[in-house]
Design a protein around this nucleic acid. Structure first.
Lengths: 241, 241
DNA sequence: ACAAAAGTGTTAGGCCTACACCCATGA
DNA sequence: TCATGGGTGTAGGCCTAACACTTTTGT
């Protein structure tokens, strides 16, 4: 962060922060990465000390190229998770007077999808934790609202974006994919129709891992066909459900 | 605005502005409201003096409840257009270092749809002007980019929102509605299919204005059935095109 | 042995798309 | 009278949704 000192303006300026809702999928349900705010009395930074919050922090006016950069920097510092700006989607701005008790703070909320299995071990640093959606504690500031809004956004985006790509491991099964959609949208699909539709899009390629497969009890493995997906997306499509 | 003085912070703070892309429909094409930036040397406010820009301005840290309030306040001051916060949709945040030559300025872009016919006369105040999309001058700051982004957003939103409600007068004709969709999406539709689909949704009610209508040369008049629309929207629908 | 998980194909109905003619008005 | 604009209906194709049985594994 820029060094502490005296910064003088002719008119009052707000502080700006970036927050990030990081979603992961543990194979069963969607989880969200939360951090525990430091209890230490660090002067003015102790608002909502000890409470859970979305990862995020103050814009470094002199160094952060955009607020998205703020978000990834804070994410790295607070949770050791290394994302890049293109992994983030902007959700919206929260600017109500009084949303931060210290001073006027405007935050820009983002969200990101990560392959939980692959980052899991990196992120137990410090005080970050993956919470199941059904189990979210009450959050600092207006972060409850931000999380709710972001969830609706995710539900909408899932129709247009390859959510599966980003939340599932490289190789996955159809039941996993279906379960992912079902848990985000909170609905149930017919197995056969789901498979038909997915195969029809032509964005899945079967992975032959050698195992002979006698029965059908063990699901087939697939991988996303990124090329086909990109081609499809370019022509403007949507995954219907 | 808050009174001028000396405002001191321990860390540098950015300035925050809100901008607004106001779309209107003149019965033929979509237009955008632009303002001409003051030429007068008002100290630091003279960036891009004399150029066209989106209406907008600085957040009043002490008085604007949210950045959306900033947008409607500035809109009123600069163009005499009176909108309310619920008329605005947030498009996104623009925060690149250097996007404003004066200091670090982060802007939150919004858009609004207005019934051009009904506000037209109020807005010729000062230096505001409605520009056809095919005729946009080059704009101050990164406002070109903001406008482009907002247009794509509008094209997306049109599938989910009752754009017609907000851009057309109370009473309108099917050809008008079709032309509106066609000019936003830059495509052409089959007249019969368009009419079938629209009527099928059940959100149009025919307006009987007494005229006997011999031929079919004069189009029928309709009004949106807001109740039906809201009901439809609540169950989650989308206008397909 | 029984319950749970996964693979697979067909049919009916609805929605989208393509398409042509008639009438009235204004030039 | 001719061109333009606007209203109207239908048939075919595609996509969606509903639906049952078999196999295997684990308990």
């Amino acid at each position: 962060m820029a060094k502490k000192g005296q910064y003088i303006y002719e008119y009052p300026h707000p502080a700006v922060t970036a927050d990030c809702v990081v979603f992961g999928y543990d194979g069963k349900e969607i989880r969200v990465l939360l951090i525990k705010r430091g209890k230490e009395k660090e002067a003015s930074t102790s608002a909502y000390a000890g409470e859970w919050a979305l990862p995020g922090g103050f814009l470094d006016v002199e160094r952060d190229l955009t607020v998205a950069h703020t978000a990834i920097r804070e994410l790295r510092e607070e949770t050791l998770l290394r994302l890049s700006v293109k992994d983030l989607k902007e959700v919206g701005t929260y600017s109500e007077i009084g949303r931060d008790p210290r001073e006027r703070v405007i935050t820009v909320a983002h969200y990101a999808l990560v392959k939980l299995a692959e980052v899991h071990s990196d992120t137990d640093a410090e005080k970050a934790e993956w919470y199941s959606l059904s189990d979210i504690p009450s959050l600092a500031f207006d972060h409850d609202r931000i999380l709710r809004d972001t969830l609706s956004r995710l539900k909408r985006d899932i129709h247009f974006e390859p959510i599966g790509f980003e939340l599932l491991p490289e190789v996955f099964t159809l039941p996993q994919l279906q379960n992912l959609y079902e848990s985000i949208l909170e609905v149930k699909f017919d197995r056969r129709n789901f498979a038909n539709k997915m195969k029809h899009y032509g964005i899945l390629s079967e992975v032959d891992d050698g195992t002979p497969r006698h029965g059908t009890r063990t699901p087939l493995k697939y991988r996303f066909d990124k090329d086909n997906y990109d081609r499809l997306k370019a022509k403007g499509f949507q995954l219907e459900f």
